[in-house]
């Protein structure tokens, strides 16, 4: 499948997504669906994992059903596909590494599952990259497939500028400027790279409170027991 048919499918799938995005991470998911996923996957994340971002089972099923999963080979030995389901991983749009490289001047768009964790600058670095495209200055020539970007050490990157003002419409009415989308999608990728973080912290507060109470009680208890010997 070429990038363009993929894009078409995505745009079509979006009409089926009535999500009323409101948090940055939720809006960022839209940016991922409509923009980033044309080239990147998140192969360790399942469509169903989006339910903790507030997507309903129906929204998830619809989104998944519009994506294709490899499904063995047909009688001629040619690869077959099937619609994805909620438990399937969000795969790269390229069926294999070679196709990915072919479509991107020899580079493979990295998987986004943990990118905001493994990049030294984290999600902020992603945001900076998305915001730092500029016209190539006069006197500088870049190889084919390289794009001028001031966030990188060598001032160029293999990813074409992905964001344009107004390229999508947020259902909650937030103006979809490039800066807004860069913000949102990096918040989303941060959320993806730290699974269950909100839940982790919420439970952590209970656990530490409980332990503090236990510490207080055991402190009183041991002081009472030891008092006779002090």
């Amino acid at each position: 499948m070429t990038r363009w048919t993929r894009n078409l499918i995505l745009v079509a799938s979006l009409t089926a997504l009535p999500a009323c995005a409101s948090t940055p991470a939720q809006r960022g998911l839209m940016v991922f669906q409509q923009v980033c996923s044309a080239c990147h996957g998140m192969e360790h994340v399942a469509y169903g994992d989006m339910s903790s971002l507030g997507l309903s089972p129906d929204e998830i099923r619809k989104w998944a059903a519009d994506q294709q999963m490899p499904n063995g080979t047909d009688d001629n030995g040619d690869p077959k596909t099937r619609p994805a389901t909620a438990t399937d991983p969000i795969l790269s749009p390229y069926p294999n590494e070679a196709m990915g490289r072919l479509a991107n001047h020899g580079l493979l768009p990295p998987d986004l599952s943990r990118l905001a964790l493994t990049l030294p600058g984290g999600a902020e670095e992603i945001r900076q990259i998305l915001l730092s495209y500029a016209p190539t200055p006069a006197g500088m020539t870049l190889d084919e497939g390289r794009y001028y970007n001031t966030a990188l050490k060598w001032k160029h990157i293999g990813m074409p500028p992905p964001l344009q003002d107004g390229m999508l419409t947020y259902p909650d009415g937030t103006p979809a400027t490039s800066a807004q989308m860069a913000n949102d999608v990096s918040a989303f990728l941060d959320w993806i790279a730290h699974p269950h973080q909100a839940e982790r912290r919420r439970i952590g507060v209970y656990v530490v409170t409980y332990l503090a109470l236990m510490a207080f009680l055991t402190f009183l208890l041991q002081r009472r027991i030891w008092r006779a010997h002090r």
Binding site: L211, A212, M214, A215, T218, F219, L221, Q222, I225, W226
Partner: peptide, 9 residues
Amino acid sequence: SRDGFALCL
């Protein structure tokens, strides 16, 4: 009792 307290910390 004392190890219990230390354990909580």
